[in-house]
Amino acid sequence: MTDIRNNWTHEEVKEIYNLPLLDLVNRASNIHRKYHDPSKMNMNTLISVRTGACSQDCKYCAQSARYNTHVKPEKLSLEKVLEEAKFAKENGVKRVCLSSAGRDGNRDDRFDEIAEMITELKKMGLEVCCTMGMINKEKAHKLAELGITAVNHNIDTSERHYPNITTTRTYAERLETLANLQEAGIQYCSGGILGMGENDEDRIEMLRTLANQDNHPYNVPLNSLVPVEGTPFYGKETIGIFEMVRAIATARILMPKTVVAFAAGRTHYSQEGQALCFLAGANSIFFGDKLLTVDNMTINEDEHLLGQLGLTPTKYHELTTLEEN
C-alpha cells in the first residue's frame, strides 16, 4: 500500500494513533527517514505585523478584543518588518511568515498592506508566507500572483469540538479557505492546538481531516496550548509530552511528505521530550524568543539543543507557520 493517501477512515487513523507509543514512534520515524533528511531541522520566524484588537472570540487567543489580556493593539510599519526580517535572515532563516490578526483577509486595505510587505521581503531574497484570516477565491489568486510561498490557516481542532473553541466563525469557513488556497495552486499549512479540552477522538478527527484534503498541507503545525491570563482557557493543564509525541507521530504517518512543526508550547517540555518529538517526525521549529504573544525557546537554547542532537538548521524548503488569529 502506498504511503501517500487522501482517503483515511476514522477507524484507520484511530488504530494508528492508539498503537503502543514506542511502536508508533518507530513506525513514524521510519517514514520520516524515507521522505526527509533526519539530520536537518527547518527553521522559520514569525513577524506579527498587526497584533491584537481581533473581533473573534477564540478562547485560546490573547489577541481577542473580547478578553482582558496583556496584549496591546499594535501595527508594525513596513520599515520595522524589514528590520526584523533582516535580523532573521542574518541568523539563517530563509522564510518569514507575516501574521495579521483578524477574521477577514479579504479587506482591501489589509490585503494591500500585506501585499506590499510580501513584495519587499521577496526583494531581500526571502521566501514569504502569511496568515491573515479568511481568504476568498479572488484574494487567493492575487496572493498566487504575488508569488507567496505559502499561506497558513489552521483548523485548530475537530469539527465536533470547534464550537467549544469559537462561536464567531464556523469550521466550514475554515475548510472553505483551505479549498480556495488549493484551487489557486498555493502551498498551504494547517494544523491545530492540543490541550483545549478535546479528547483523543477529536485529535484523530483533526488529523484525518487534514490528511484527507485533496492536497496534503505542506506543513502541519502542532501546538501545545499556552494558557494566557485573561483568556477563557487560562488555567488549563498542559498536556503531557507523550500526548504531543502521539499526535506528531500520527501526523507523520498520515502525511509522509509534509513538514510537521512542533510549534507553540515547546517551553513546557524538557529537551529530552522535544528530542522524542523530533524522532517521531517533527522537523520544524520556530526561531525567536516570541511566537506572536507567547514565549518561545531562546535562540541560545535552540542552538544548544540542536547541537546536542546533531541536527543542522537548514534552508526552509517547506512551510512552517503558526496562526493565532
Rank of each mutant, 00 (worst) to 15 (best):
M1H: 12
K14V: 01
D23R: 14
N30F: 05
H32N: 14
S39F: 03
K59M: 01
C61L: 05
Q63N: 10
N68A: 12
N68R: 11
K75E: 11
K80C: 02
E83A: 15
A85G: 15
F87V: 15
K89C: 05
V93C: 08
R103Q: 08
D104W: 03
N106K: 03
D108W: 01
D109S: 14
F111Y: 15
D112R: 13
K122W: 08
C130E: 00
I148T: 14
T149I: 00
H153V: 03
P163D: 01
N164H: 01
A172G: 07
A179L: 03
G185F: 11
I186P: 12
I193K: 00
L194P: 02
M196L: 12
M206C: 04
A211Y: 02
Q213C: 13
D214C: 02
N219M: 14
S224R: 00
V228M: 06
T231R: 03
G235A: 11
K236Q: 04
G240I: 07
F242H: 15
R246D: 03
T250I: 10
L254R: 11
A261V: 13
F262E: 00
H268Y: 00
Y269C: 11
Q274N: 14
A275H: 09
L276Q: 09
L279N: 11
A280H: 10
A280R: 10
N283R: 15
D295R: 10
M297F: 09
T298P: 13
N300G: 11
Q308Y: 05
L309T: 08
P313Q: 10
L319Q: 11
